[in-house]
Write a protein that binds this DNA or RNA. Structure first.
Length: 886
DNA sequence: GGCTCCTGCAA
DNA sequence: TATTGCAGGAGCC
């Protein structure tokens, strides 16, 4: 095979890549779009060119010889955007990992290095391709040096290729003449002056005739048009200088060694790690089969435990140590085994099998798990607690959960697998569960993989937990989150487990009736809609509905989505009155939503045994520190509309029990008052005033007692907006007023509550300076968007910086309350239990004998969760259904 | 079957 | 062009 050298203009291609892709970032907030685009371009080029050698040249910041000749050189060039600049060291790391040579020369630009390298290749008879986004490079084209210029149009990249002849054909001048051309016409992007008054057309004509500036000058008398001749005569020095500046140096002092450019092992371990960190999913697929050997370098002595004797021995070893990490490997209800590590260098895998089943293994380990003196670390304690319950184990001294720990350190990531932790904290590659087992249809069981592979994988699980513990603990301490993690997040795990364990009882007959009732109404609406549309169609399909409304019925288009007409509720609202079908569709939407998501949806989760729904509560999802609820989500059960609210009647306590529901009154605004130290707000809250009415009287200049209900509800929207980081546009949309009016409301608000304005500005400034926001309990949320040069991104970051301390502090407060309420109920030996949290609300299933006591404890613990300058008011209600607790 | 988009529910 | 979430259905590959 012939050698083929590919030379790359690093800055130019990075620039192309950056503007060719949307601003992507990995889950840590590191921008990656230019790096990804760059890699895609060069990998495609390597393939297309069948390149055997490769080198990449970058510009240095330092001035070049051109600056010495002409100090205005590139004087008008704006620096690259920060988001791109931040990616330059990353691409260099990636190239180093891929063992691709990087060239940077003081005093020269990348062009010069490329020119020199290309010429040297040509000298030794090797074909070369120079890849650049910059047409200046065309002067380098020869019969053996090809210049490739990628063009991106509509997502796909095509490449224009120029040998010497192609340049002549396309521009009417040879590559060498290209330099003279530029000398005459100049180049505004590099700030090369050229000859004033001579533009592209004239320059091409002159050079095509005389082939160089010098030759043209020699024939200055015959030069046409006369204007150009005059200009060239006057500015001949400038023309020569411009030519010099435009000339790419082909003999700079770069060390050329063809062999060092050889493409060898670009898909190696180091590259894999980087791609993983950068989250280049598609590029990672090129590393097929690498995962298995990828963690060989993480040396670990693996012990397989599959006899009772060996297990016995392990248990006695564990009794000698003071801490260990474990991970229980399960698959559905099937326990595969237990991984244990009690030092840095080795790990054990207890494999459950016929001779030694799960129940046996767990029974053997019971004392270990229940020991107070033996500290344990795990990953995903809440799931462990479900398992321990199955084997009647009451674990003690589980001091660290790396799952919740990793979230606490950085709550903005979207996964916190052991593989992620291995990567982030230990720089160790570990396949994720999906990578090990495959996903979707092709997923296999743990029991189906090679025993040796399973052993290695399993041993690493506990070992990673064991080894990352110190680092994660240190990070928590460094960030001042000891209190948050050890006194709130860790104890909360048990509380969430308890809520999942207890669940909430549902009257399935009532739910069924509700679904039936909805079905009747939906069927009727459906036929009415078909009647009005004069045809049948899928009303649930926004696409089909759009055609009916906006094409067939010719209703005005209010809003469009990326893919077509918007038929969202706010659009239908505006079309109300235009056609009788609109109301029917709105109602149909509402009822089908209730039926599918809530009636039918919830039905599938009702336990056959206990008639209860056991939702999962997620502690590592929300970037603000909130808890979320899934399968099913019990935090979005309807309440605003009566028809939807009815669904709450199916949530009932068990016999002899009653619901007690307590919710914080205006928790976010109270926290805002405290955090902003706003005297007006603090006093209003402490005196029990109606806060929305107060805001209305302040913002609309109305006496407090004369505030109308419309004014109050508008003020309520303003208050909400403040908490979310308001914009005039959105407020105007929300209140159906003009932007100008909305702007006035906001200005009035800040005039009346100046300390709130100062506080919110400070939130932004703090987050901009440090890169993150903090809550009252030092919960920390990175906000990389604040550094963006994109207005939209940055504005988003600013709203987040205003909202996170408020929403996050509220999350902190209710978490403390949950722990204290739960502890109180347990320490008082009550049968009543906490079963649900809805951000500012706690639902207790209380025994009827304990109602008064529980009400008292509940209010006390919630109101005193934190001591701040504003009273934390709590409203309590009891009821025989969730509906009735109002 | 897996994925994205639109839609809509809660605090 | 308001914050944080979860989920169902359509439609596409």
């Amino acid at each position: 095979m012939h050698d083929k050298v590919l030379l790359i203009d690093g800055n130019s291609i990075m620039n192309r890549a950056y503007y060719g892709l949307p601003l992507l970032s990995n889950s840590e907030g590191v921008y990656t779009n230019a790096v990804l685009g760059f890699l895609n371009i060069i990998l495609k080029a390597i393939k297309d060119e069948e390149a055997t050698h490769i080198g990449v040249a970058f510009d240095l910041k330092a001035p070049t010889f051109r600056h010495e000749k002409y100090k205005e050189y590139k004087g008008n060039r704006k620096g690259m955007p920060d988001e791109l600049r931040m990616q330059m060291p990353i691409i260099k790391d990636v190239l180093k990992a891929m063992d691709i040579s990087i060239f940077e020369m003081e005093g020269y630009e990348a062009d010069d290095v490329l020119g020199t390298l290309a010429h040297q290749c040509e000298k030794i008879g090797v074909d070369t391709t120079v890849l650049s986004g910059d047409r200046d490079l065309l002067q380098l084209a020869t019969k053996h040096i090809k210049i490739s210029i990628p063009k991106t149009k509509k997502g796909s990249t095509t490449i224009e290729n120029y040998f010497e002849a192609d340049v002549l054909e396309r521009y009417g001048v040879t590559p060498t003449e290209f330099i003279d051309l530029k000398g005459l016409m100049g180049d505004s992007s590099d700030n090369i002056p050229g000859v004033p008054g001579i533009g592209e057309k004239t320059a091409i004509k002159i050079i095509a005739t005389y082939h160089s500036i010098e030759e043209a000058y020699r024939h200055i008398d015959q030069l046409k048009p006369p204007r150009a001749a005059k200009n060239l005569e006057e500015h001949y020095d400038l023309a020569l200088l411009s030519k010099e500046l435009a000339t790419i140096c082909v003999d700079c002092d770069v060390c050329f060694d063809k062999d060092s450019l050889k493409i060898d092992n670009i898909y190696n371990e180091a590259t894999y790690k980087l791609f993983k960190q950068l989250e280049f999913k598609r590029l990672l697929e090129k590393f097929e089969g690498m995962e298995e050997d990828s963690y060989v370098e993480d040396l670990l002595t693996e012990h397989l435990i599959e006899t009772k004797e060996a297990l016995d021995q392990l248990v006695s070893q564990l009794q000698q140590v003071h801490k260990f990490a474990y991970y229980i490997l399960t698959e559905g209800m099937d326990m595969i085994g237990i991984s244990i590590a009690y030092n840095e260098n080795e790990a054990y895998f207890i494999k459950c099998q016929e001779s030694m089943d799960d129940a046996f293994c767990m029974a053997q380990l019971k004392d270990i798990f229940e020991s107070h003196d033996l500290q344990k670390m795990t990953h995903g304690l809440k799931e462990d607690l479900h398992l321990f319950n199955r084997y009647k184990i009451e674990p003690k001294s589980i001091v660290f959960d790396t799952f919740v720990g990793a979230y606490t350190v950085n709550p903005t990531r979207d996964t916190y697998g052991i593989d992620d932790i291995a990567n982030d904290y230990l720089k160790v590659m570990l396949p994720s569960q999906d990578e090990l087992l495959g996903k979707g249809k092709s997923r296999i069981s743990y029991r189906a993989i090679e025993p040796q592979q399973l052993l290695t994988y399993a041993c690493h699980l506990s070992s990673i937990i064991y080894r990352s513990y110190d680092l994660m603990h240190a990070a928590i301490e460094e960030y001042g989150m000891h209190e948050l993690f050890y006194n709130i997040e860790m104890p909360l795990i048990q509380v969430l487990y308890d809520m999942e364990y207890y669940g909430i009882k549902v009257d399935s007959v009532l739910l069924h009736d509700y679904a039936d009732k909805l079905k009747v109404m939906i069927d009727l609406l459906e036929s009415e809609i078909y009647e009005l549309a004069d045809e049948t169609f899928n009303i649930k399909s926004p696409k089909q509905l759009g055609v009916i409304l906006f094409e067939k019925l010719k209703l005005p288009v209010i809003k469009k989505t990326k893919t077509g007409y918007s038929t969202a509720a706010e659009v239908l609202e505006k079309l109300k009155g235009e056609h009788p079908i609109i109301d029917k569709i709105s109602e149909y939407r509402q009822l089908t939503k209730l039926k599918s998501t809530y009636a039918d949806g919830l039905f599938d989760y009702i336990g056959k045994e206990d008639s209860r729904i056991h939702s999962s509560f997620q502690q590592t999802i929300a970037a603000t520190g909130r808890i979320s609820s899934t399968e099913p989500n019990l935090q979005n059960i309807p309440i605003r509309m009566e028809m939807g609210r009815e669904i709450r009647k199916v949530f009932v306590p068990e016999d002899d029990y009653i619901f007690i529901d307590a919710d914080y009154s205006q928790i976010e605004l109270r926290l805002l008052a405290h955090l902003a130290e706003d005297e007006t707000l603090i006093n209003a809250f402490n005196e029990g005033q109606d806060i929305h009415r107060l805001t209305a009287s302040q913002v609309f200049h109305v006496p407090f007692d004369e505030v109308s209900s419309l004014e109050r509800s508008n003020a309520k929207a303003v208050n909400f907006g403040i908490v979310y980081g308001i914009g005039a546009f959105s407020l105007s949309q929300d209140l159906h007023i003009t932007r100008k009016e909305a702007q006035e409301y906001i200005q009035n608000y800040f005039k009346k509550y100046p300390s709130v304005k100062i506080y919110l500005d400070n939130c932004i400034r703090y987050a901009k300076n440090r890169g993150y926001s903090l809550t009252m309990l030092q919960r920390r949320r990175p906000i990389p968007e604040l550094a963006s040069s994109n207005f939209m991104q940055r504005s988003f970051g600013e709203r987040v910086a205003m909202n996170t301390p408020i929403q996050g502090s509220a999350a902190d407060v209710i978490k403390i309350a949950m722990i204290n309420v739960s502890n109180k109920l347990k320490s008082e030996n009550l049968r009543s239990r906490l079963i649900l949290q809805v951000h500012d609300e706690l639902l207790i299933e209380a025994h009827r004998d304990e109602v008064e006591l529980v009400k008292q404890y509940l209010v006390e613990e919630m109101e005193n969760a934190v001591q701040i300058s504003v009273k934390m008011k709590v409203d309590v209600n009891i009821g025989m259904t969730w509906y009735d607790t109002k």
